[in-house]
Each structure stands twice: as structure tokens, then as C-alpha cells.
Amino acid sequence: MSKVVETVKQVVKPILAKHSFYLFDVAFVKEKGGWYLRVYIDKDGGVTIDDCVLVSDELGEKLDEMEPDPIPQAYFLEVSSPGAERPLRNDEELRQAVGEYVNLSLYKNLNGNKSFEGTLKSVTEDQVVLENDQWGKHPTVAIPRDLIAKARLAIKF
């Protein structure tokens, strides 16, 4: 992990705690000839644009006050939500998503499919169970954990 990312995490966590937000991720990347510091925040019920502006203002002020400057090159600070279809990157995030509508991509076919969407009903060490009332006679499917390539929240249409 880069020193910039680690420093920003340490600076932003007290700001987020003060406002009952939590940190989803921090990225410091070079794109299109410029550096971007991206801070992804969330809270119960989701974040608003005003929440992002609040954190951006407070974080920018704290970073500007630091000596020596933790980010000596010019950069763009972006504070945002991780998104409605954010990835579920680890066991903790997957367990927190129980009851949510999710999309799972698999390494290989299961029952003729490599992708499933439904309400996440349970998560164990060995499997996850999804339910979707549009699946007809068999509205639930148990998916072995070792088949899951990617998991993310999904929007139900």
C-alpha cells in the first residue's frame, strides 16, 4: 500500500467518525496526466453529495495543514460513495450484505449459469444462498464459495 494512501486513511478516519461515516476505500492513481486522490465513504442509508462535500472540505484542509506535505505533487481530491453496485470485497462485506440484492459472477457454470442475481439469504464458510422469486419452482440456489469470482451489490429492476 502506498504511503500516500496510508497517510490519507489515518487523516480521514477521525473526520469520518465525527460524522458517523465509514471508510470504504482510498486510491491514489495517475490518470490522463494527472494524479487523483479518491476517497470512498459510506454510511447507513447511503451518502449524499453534501456528505461528500463536507468530507472533501475537512480532509482537504487537514492535508493542506500537514508539514511536511504528505502529497507533494499536484492532485485532484475526489470524495464519493462507492456506488449502488459496489463490490463486496471480503467476507465481512458479504456478510453485511445479507438481505440485500446482489450479483455473483462465478468461475465456472453452476446449473448452466455463470452469473446469479437475487437476495442474499445467508453466508457460511462453504456457501452463499440466493433467493429470487423469478426463478420459478426453485427460488433459492446454494452457491459454493470457491466458485465465486466476484460479488457486488445490484439494483433490482
Rank of each mutant, 00 (worst) to 15 (best):
A17D: 09
K18F: 10
K18A: 08
K18W: 08
H19W: 06
H19L: 01
S20R: 05
S20H: 11
Y22H: 14
Y22W: 07
Y22Q: 14
D25M: 02
D25E: 10
D25I: 07
V26K: 03
V26G: 02
V26M: 02
V29Y: 04
V29G: 12
K30W: 00
K32C: 07
G33H: 05
G33E: 13
R38V: 09
V39M: 02
V39Y: 03
V39D: 01
I41S: 00
I41M: 00
D42K: 04
D42P: 01
D42T: 02
K43I: 03
G46T: 02
T48I: 04
I49Y: 08
I49H: 11
I49S: 10
D51R: 01
C52S: 13
C52H: 09
V53W: 00
V53M: 05
L54D: 02
V55R: 00
V55C: 03
D57M: 10
E58D: 04
E58M: 04
G60N: 05
E61Y: 05
E61H: 00
L63V: 08
D64S: 11
E65L: 05
E65K: 06
E67D: 08
P68G: 09
P68E: 13
P70C: 11
P72W: 13
Q73A: 15
E78K: 14
V79L: 01
V79R: 06
S81N: 06
S81Y: 03
P82E: 12
G83A: 00
A84E: 00
E85S: 01
P87Y: 07
D91I: 12
E93N: 14
R95I: 06
R95K: 11
Q96K: 06
V98P: 11
V98Q: 07
V98S: 10
G99R: 13
E100K: 07
L104S: 07
S105W: 00
L106C: 01
Y107W: 01
Y107D: 12
K108E: 02
L110Y: 07
L110P: 08
G112A: 03
K114E: 05
S115D: 07
F116Q: 11
F116L: 10
F116V: 11
G118R: 03
G118N: 03
L120V: 14
L120T: 09
K121T: 13
S122W: 07
S122Q: 09
V123M: 15
Q127H: 09
Q127M: 11
V128Y: 04
V128H: 06
L130S: 13
L130F: 10
E131G: 10
N132I: 12
D133Y: 08
Q134W: 04
G136H: 10
G136A: 14
G136M: 13
K137R: 10
K137S: 08
H138T: 10
H138F: 09
P139T: 03
T140H: 12
T140M: 12
V141C: 10
I143V: 06
P144T: 03
R145E: 04
D146N: 05
